[in-house]
Amino acid sequence: MDRRALIKLIGAGVVTATTRPLGAAALTSPRLIAKPIPSTGEPLTVIGMGTWQTFNVGSDQPLRDARTSVLQAFFAAGGQLVDSSPMYGSSQDVVGDALDRLGHPERLFSADKVWTRDGDETRAQTTVSAAKWRIGRFDLMQIHNLLSWEAHLERLAEMKAQGEVRYIGVTTSHGRRHLELEQVMRGNALDFVQLTYNPADREVEARLLPLAREHGMAVIANRPFRGGGLVDRLQRRGGPLPGWAGEIGCHNWPQLVLKWIVSHPAVTCAIPATSRVDHMRENMGAAVGELPDEALRARMLEAIQTA
């Protein structure tokens, strides 16, 4: 039985489990939270990893070593989805180098983006990116910030049909171009959408998140800490966590924020970025334990907003 088949079998159980109250499900650990990708049912650990800024260290060997340790901590804690882009400087190269040194962990779910105005460059840029990651193909290929999305989406659909990528999607960030994203989501078959969602940026709750559920699209939440500013504020002024946070396995503010994000029924995965191993372990702590129900989620939001 190959890895994909095994994962799918496990995923079938996850789909059932996530429909329960406090919908959490186990993947490799009884306490690790995963959610199914709607289009296939394949489970995905709810905390992934972004690489914007943090993995852009060029050929600096000491910093590459440090980033390899971060990625190692991510996989050790059950992480799967790693997201990058050609726009992120040397991040793709650094991820590829780290994956090589870690022996290409089986649980990697590779997500990258097409970032070019040239609609004929979809396949070529994907090939270059895969070479930098040092992998054969990507699990997920997205269109970065909807750039030339019509042409790229057509190519990506062809590539998916031919097995060159497993999933396709589109991205936005900073709450931009939501109207256009809604049109794209209504008119196209997408596996994933990536957008900004955190306790301070909740515009997507009104239309885009319900739309993603309606159309069976997985949602990746980027900028979960608002570029770090949200967590900095909470840790500086937020004081101690509410007593009930421990009930859902939250031991610090970053975990409370992340767990609040991924407990939205439409959200599949959040992708915080960090260059520190201790922060990575903190972040991955949000993928353990239970997800809050709607009432507890409301209390979490209030605690974050009033902190």
């Binding site: 914007w52 800024q53 943090t54 852009n56 260290v57 060029g58 600096d60 000491p62 910093l63 726009m87 992120y88 400087g89 900073h174 709450g175 931009r176 171009r177 570029g227 260059s275």
Partner: peptide, 26 residues
């Protein structure tokens, strides 16, 4: 328009540590 949604840091694709290290490497 969209420019209002950007902060200065959104145009910087690296962290301070990596930038300082450039001087050390040089």
């Amino acid at each position: 328009g969209e420019l209002e949604t950007y902060a200065l840091i959104d145009f910087i694709p690296f962290e301070a540590e990596a930038y300082f290290r450039l001087f050390a490497r040089q």
